[in-house]
Design a protein around this nucleic acid. Structure first.
Lengths: 360, 360
DNA sequence: TATTTCTCCGTGCACGTGCACGGAGAAATT
DNA sequence: AATTTCTCCGTGCACGTGCACGGAGAAATA
């Protein structure tokens, strides 16, 4: 083991020396807070360039007294729900940034209730946060919220879905349209052209579908058109309620008894385990089933072979990257990419374990 | 924006205060380098526990004079090859760790020449490295090498493939057997049971196949057995040379002319673009093609629809995680997981873009 | 008792950066 | 000319930790 001092990392005082000024002046140039003559500024900038200086981020955050406080806004959830992953990922992610003097506060709203979202969002302002990360469930309310954020000069990022034409810092999420397209391909390829397909939708209040669902559905239809299957395939829509499992069961029962030769079924959200549960009860293994997200129940049915495909969208990464980019932009003044589509990950029973077990 | 000093992070001097000793003593306990009375030691340990102290890693590595030097051993490659990704990833990864006083030296060997590997490996010792990361291409030579590493107390990690029963720190790589199994599933599902399948192998010197290839092939066969297709499917093996493209072309020509109704073809390495090129020249679109790894050429043929599936194994992650774990273990004395299988990522023309573009 | 050795421990500087403070000299004002 | 204001810049401490140095007191040796 070698004890070598200093591998010659060049620091602020090296450029001070080269530029013929003191490190205080260098500091003023780096954080351009003025009070520097043009001559000195240029000398420093040249030195920085010549020596290819990059600051030691550790020393920086050690020395910095600034404390950054971010707020994230996500829906309330039941244990095992999709949103639990995102929630836990925030805790996980913030741990990687505590040493940068970063802390985070989470706020929850009712995903069926737009006014709950508005109230939660409003409560953010009293905290005077340095940045906000949110899943923009309700378009109108989100627009109102972010315009107020902009007025107060508070940067914000979207994840999961986005509201376009707003001045968000970053977006991390899946391209829903494309993921619906891919879902269609996986579900339909190899099936007869006139097969019966069950499309299971979950309605929220006022019959409104989520952004994600709408766009995935569009992508789904697009594939069907492209393959020239429109009008040939028999698409059967089944509308379930979000909370009434008993009613849902009989709705499914109804659908399957009316359509005897269903070859495949799909949901555009994470609730595919409902369908799986239903099919398993009936010991039907002849229906190709596809859904989204790696809920524990979904994974179990995938491994059992009841579900054929799951499409995942790395919720943990969405959260981590959103937070990281906010740090990069605000703390380290680095550039970040605005729109970031996460991969459309295809999971089958044979590769699911490696996907889940892999901890980066 | 809030200027709040100190969010109450407890540091070494807080435990010194609570334990009634100086921070020097606390330091001696933490790094247990002795010269501490039992009474003091226990007081400090109690204080650490009571206050739930965790060291500030930034301050630690800032103050530390120790410089860690790692060596990695990878094969030489042509531009665009699989190993280029790994090579570049090392550069990328080491950047994240320079502030921890870490540097890395890369060493290359000829992947067709075991003795080249041995020579390269031997040259490592003169550097007195703190750790070694290698892709263990040659079993015998690797065994000799690592036993010498162990004798000199130098920790080492495998990636890409591993040599079992050695005392490696970590392994990151794909489960080759399982990935071959999955490859078979993707390639064969939906084909007639008596289809003609081309299995294209690349021989290295002395007719030796790489570990990866052997195991993927085993997994492939396993699936065929499980499906009861053994003896029904017509598997045609084609052996190509690694470097003679002209000979390879005529070998393929030969294979396709002898087997008129080939329905699918597979290679267990990254050279599937050869097959794609051949099929494209002949304007044949009726052959389902599967291969490994996201070489630029492979991706192009996938997007064109010549290749149906690519299986990826996150070489960048393998490298990054190997290096990160070495830091965790050696610098921060944290525990790491020994065997880490990376996901078997399934890519089709419709999800490849998101996969490639996504920068974490 | 005087000297040496040994055990234990406190002090103080360093790492690279941020930032407050104050000072020197020029320019503007009285 | 004396004073004030303004522009520019250097000095020095702090962040939390690692580590070298040396000192105090006890124990061992003379």
């Amino acid at each position: 083991m070698n004890e070598e001092n200093k591998q010659g990392r060049i620091g602020i005082k090296d450029i001070a020396l080269l530029a013929g000024v003191s490190k205080g002046t260098v500091d003023r140039v780096i954080h351009n807070r003025g009070e520097v003559s043009i001559k000195s500024r240029e000398a420093v900038q040249k030195a920085i360039k010549d020596l290819d200086y990059s600051p030691n981020l550790f020393a920086r955050s050690l020395a910095s007294r600034k404390h950054y406080r971010f707020v994230c806004i996500i829906p309330k959830y039941q244990p095992g729900d999709y949103w639990e992953t995102a929630d836990l990922s925030f805790d996980e992610a913030v741990r990687s940034f505590t040493d940068y003097n970063v802390s985070i506060e989470k706020k929850y709203f009712d995903q069926l209730d737009a006014s709950s979202f508005a109230v939660t969002a409003e409560s953010v302002f009293s905290q005077l946060p340095d940045g906000v990360i949110l899943a923009p469930f309700f378009r109108t309310e989100t627009l109102a919220f972010v315009s107020k954020l902009i007025a107060q000069n508070i940067p914000f990022s979207f994840f999961d879905s986005m509201v376009e034409d707003t001045d968000f810092l970053t977006y991390y999420g899946q391209n829903s349209f494309q993921s619906g397209y891919i879902a269609a391909k996986l579900l339909l390829d190899g099936l007869p052209e006139d097969a019966e397909i069950l499309v299971v939708l979950t309605q929220r209040k006022k019959n409104v579908l989520s952004n994600q669902t709408v766009n995935r559905n569009r992508g789904f239809i697009e594939y069907i058109k492209k393959r020239g299957l429109e009008g040939k395939l028999k698409l059967v829509e089944v509308w379930l309620a979000d909370d009434d499992e008993k009613a849902n069961f009989s709705l499914l029962q109804d659908a399957f008894s009316k359509n005897k030769s269903v070859k495949a079924a799909i949901t555009f959200n994470s609730k595919v385990y409902r369908l799986a549960m239903y099919l398993e009860n009936l010991h039907r293994t002849d229906v190709r089933l596809l859904g989204y997200d790696l809920l524990e129940k979904n994974v179990r049915y995938l491994k059992q072979g009841v579900i054929s495909f799951l499409i995942a969208q790395r919720p943990d990464k969405q959260v981590y990257c959103s937070l990281r980019d906010m740090c990069r932009k605000l703390i380290f003044k680095q550039e970040v990419t605005r729109v970031n589509y996460v991969p459309v990950d295809l999971l089958i029973k044979d590769n699911i374990d490696y996907y889940i077990d892999f901890k980066e």
